[in-house]
């Protein structure tokens, strides 16, 4: 479903996209369109994009085409979703130990919307770190 979402083809474009949004949250998915995990993630992203358009905008970045952020944002995982608000990286405590990003494919749309809403609300209040509505630590998976 990646074709439904705007792609950013350069580091400059990524920066500009982050800078351009004043009132909305910028959600960027780093990864590859052909990657299985990314496909799952993109499915969710594409389906919620219209729903959340009033407070968040979603972009996709191919990390092979744009390797500029690989070191800076530690983009080792197949799929990484990060949030920015007014040129500020918003961290989110998901319970996984990595508060910087969502580095797995979230398959539940409502969960994702909830997360984005939480991030947006926190970011609006000037928070740099928000706490996800659900704990995604592995101990609850089993």
């Amino acid at each position: 479903m990646s074709y439904l979402l705007p792609h950013l083809h350069s580091g400059w474009a990524v920066d500009q996209s982050i800078l351009a949004e004043e009132e909305r949250l910028v959600v960027i998915r780093f990864g590859h369109d052909w990657d299985e995990t990314c496909m799952q993630m993109d499915e969710v992203l594409a389906s919620v994009a219209e729903t959340i358009k009033n407070f968040a905008v979603i972009y996709l970045v191919d990390i092979t085409e744009v390797p500029d952020f690989n070191t800076m944002y530690e983009l080792y995982d197949p799929s990484t979703v990060m949030f920015f608000f007014r040129n500020k990286h918003i961290m989110i405590d998901l319970g996984t130990g990595n508060n910087n990003k969502i580095n797995w494919a979230l398959k539940d749309k409502q969960e994702f919307i909830d997360i984005i809403e939480t991030v947006y609300r926190g970011a609006r209040k000037g928070r740099g770190l928000v706490i996800a509505p659900k704990d995604y630590s592995t101990k609850y998976r089993y």
């Binding site: 350069s10 580091g11 500029d68």
Partner: peptide, 14 residues
């Protein structure tokens, strides 16, 4: 253009 620098982004180490 150096990506990220233009907007003063800083990375992290986890």
């Amino acid at each position: 253009y150096v990506a990220g620098l233009g907007r003063g982004a800083t990375g992290f180490t986890t």
